[in-house]
């Protein structure tokens, strides 16, 4: 069965770039789901099972940190690995993401190789 990924970013442009980068990295997901913020992602996850989540941090409505907090509290989705893709490269915010279960992080701007390197070990 093909793998599914959920991309969370408030920028439609960035969701398209991440989608393209996944393909360029040789990570051919059968299904690529998208959400514009953390709350929209939780809504998607209420009806879909995914293998991995790629999430921005700085988003309206519900940011990536609150999304991690809510996900950790839900036993049905808490074990899905999340990789943060963000301009927020500060150690404090990435430490907080890690403490809430984030499996890794990728700083924008990024290359397909960086995506492959980070996601390869999680799939």
């Amino acid at each position: 069965m093909g793998k599914k990924v959920l991309i969370i970013d408030d920028s439609n442009t960035m969701r398209k770039i991440v989608t393209r980068s996944l393909r360029q990295a040789g990570l051919d997901f059968e299904t690529i789901l998208e959400a514009g913020d953390g709350q929209a992602a939780l809504d998607v996850l209420a009806g879909e099972t995914v293998d991995i989540i790629l999430s921005d941090i700085n988003m309206p409505v519900m940011d990536g940190i609150e999304f991690l907090r809510q996900k950790q509290a839900d036993p049905k989705i808490k074990d899905i690995p999340v990789v943060m893709i963000t301009t927020e490269a500060g150690a404090d915010i990435l430490d907080e993401a890690k403490s809430l279960g984030a499996a890794g992080s990728i700083k924008k701007p990024f290359t397909p190789d960086q995506i492959q390197e980070t996601l390869g070990s999680l799939l």
């Binding site: 920028s11 442009t13 398209k16 393209r20 963000t86 301009t87 927020e88 490269a89 500060g90 924008k108």
Partner: peptide
């Protein structure tokens, strides 16, 4: 950014330029 021809300033253009500013700001913040 989108690898497609864009011919008018629409929501895609505003979103792309916003994301560009976001990335530059993130690097300077670091």
């Amino acid at each position: 950014f989108l690898m497609m021809e864009v011919t008018e300033v629409d929501d895609d253009v505003k979103d792309a330029i916003g994301e560009l500013a976001n990335m530059v700001a993130g690097s300077i913040k670091a």
